[in-house]
Simulated scan of single mutants.
Amino acid sequence: MNYWLVKSEPFKYSWDDFVKEGKSVWDGVRNYQARNNMKAMQKGDWVFFYHSNEGVEIVGLAEVSKEFYQDPTTEDPRWVVVELKPIKKFPKTVTLKAMKADDRLSSLALIKQSRLSVTPVQKAEFDIILSLTE
Rank of each mutant, 00 (worst) to 15 (best):
F49Q: 05
K23Q: 14
M99A: 00
N2W: 02
R78N: 13
R30F: 11
A34E: 10
V94W: 02
A40E: 15
K7N: 09
S14F: 11
A98R: 11
G44H: 06
V6W: 08
E21G: 08
I87N: 09
E75D: 14
W46V: 07
Y69N: 06
D71A: 04
V82N: 11
G22K: 01
K23L: 07
K20E: 15
W79G: 03
F90R: 08
V64R: 09
L61R: 01
S106W: 00
A124H: 14
V25K: 14
G22T: 06
V80H: 07
T133R: 06
K100E: 12
W15G: 08
V59E: 09
T73S: 15
T119C: 04
G28F: 12
K20Y: 12
R115N: 11
F68I: 06
E75R: 08
D127T: 00
P91H: 02
I129N: 02
V59R: 14
S52Y: 07
Q33T: 10
P91F: 00
V82Y: 08
S106L: 00
A109M: 07
N36L: 10
V25R: 15
D27V: 01
N36K: 11
N2T: 05
D102P: 02
K92P: 03
L108F: 05
S65E: 10
E21N: 15
K66H: 14
L5S: 05
A40G: 13
R115A: 07
V59F: 10
G22L: 01
E75N: 12
W46F: 15
F11H: 12
G22D: 05
L110A: 03
V118N: 02
